[in-house]
Design a protein around this nucleic acid. Structure first.
Lengths: 196, 196
DNA sequence: AGGTATACCTAATCATGTTAGGTTTTCCTA
DNA sequence: TAGGAAAACCTAACATGATTAGGTATACCT
């Protein structure tokens, strides 16, 4: 395929993704049909198959895009300064990211779509994020696998509660700093992070 | 309706629910159709409407049943002894409950079903459970709303991670005791549970 | 100018939840 | 105990969903 055409193809693909995101935000992650996406970009449903081989492939592309955005959010967080303060920053940033787009949160962190699993490539992006997180935690002395596991569970848990019980509020997200301090106190060596 | 008939009706209703649970456990919470449930109880799909006015009503009944089971699990946990030990017991019990049936976990604690919201009556059961939890936490000095919120977020978070990342394992659930101790240390008065 | 891949379409298939409109079964009552 | 009403079930049909088949037109390279 020629360059010009490839660019055009990619642009249309992104247009479709944008339409899907808009619908997902409006009507819920799974609350939209291919016909609706198609209508939003002035096509008929079957034409979408030129750009995505199945509906799940759209979800997969959204998944990848979401993790790329999270990586960007990470990048925007200043990583220098007192390690614990950096951690607080990261925690707040993460929660803000989750709450900003509940549909995205569900797609990235909950298993909401029946039968959908991210492709290898998309999953790799998720692991990039995790690696990045591991780095920041280490800086603050949270080196154990247990600490990382607890971190992810706690903060996705906080986001989930916030989103499903009080969307738009901060009853759970405002606990961020406190929780960070708590985890640092309990799990930084020696030897809350027992052995490794 | 006569008593005999009412009993029969209720029995069939439960039969349908059991079939739905079985399918949900087998193929995922949303991975079954009315036709399949009907086949499992030797009927055709439309006949199910004698017992449930819509598919969501089945989910609602499952939701209620799930919370009744959780209440029972609570009842089975000995509530006397050292408060912190009781808390550990409760935490382990809860995680066991979640991991034992991922479909149930999703139904009760995640918003997985598009468009489904529990009825008032079913939701009341969920609040019963929460009230019960509040009681146990208070016994151990965790009296603040913040402590309760953090508790629910953390333990549903742990369960979610365990279920979606390592089903059948214990990488997250084994953190239970440690997390309980951590929360008690950080949030029992004075005055981790600041003011109220 | 012509050929070919691409982009798009309509028509159709099959599964889904749900409604309409029966027929059969059950069981209370006269 | 006969009759009738309600309950329990059925088949047929609909609308909407994802997806496939099989075309037509457009864009671009040679």
């Amino acid at each position: 395929m020629t360059d010009r055409r490839a660019r055009r193809h990619e642009a249309t693909r992104q247009e479709i993704l944008d339409a899907a995101w808009a619908l997902a935000r409006e009507r819920g992650l799974t609350g939209w049909s291919l016909r609706e996406v198609a209508a939003a970009v002035d096509m008929r449903a079957p034409s979408l198959y030129v750009y995505f081989e199945r509906k799940d492939a759209i979800y997969d592309a959204m998944f990848a895009q979401g993790y790329r955005e999270l990586l960007a959010e990470f990048g925007a967080t200043s990583t220098d300064g007192e390690p614990v303060e950096v951690l607080r920053q990261v925690a707040r940033g993460f929660l803000g990211f989750c709450v900003a787009d509940p549909a995205r949160f569900q797609l990235l962190f909950l298993r909401v779509i029946p039968g959908f699993a991210p492709s290898e490539g998309s999953y790799a992006l998720a692991e990039d994020v995790l690696a990045r997180l591991r780095g920041v935690l280490e800086q603050a002395g949270l080196t154990s696998q247990r600490a990382v596991d607890l971190w992810t569970a706690t903060f996705t848990g906080l986001a989930a509660q916030q989103i499903s019980n009080e969307p738009g509020g901060d009853r759970w997200t405002r606990l961020a700093d406190e929780v960070v301090d708590m985890m640092v106190a309990a799990m930084s060596a020696p030897d809350g992070g027992r052995s490794r």
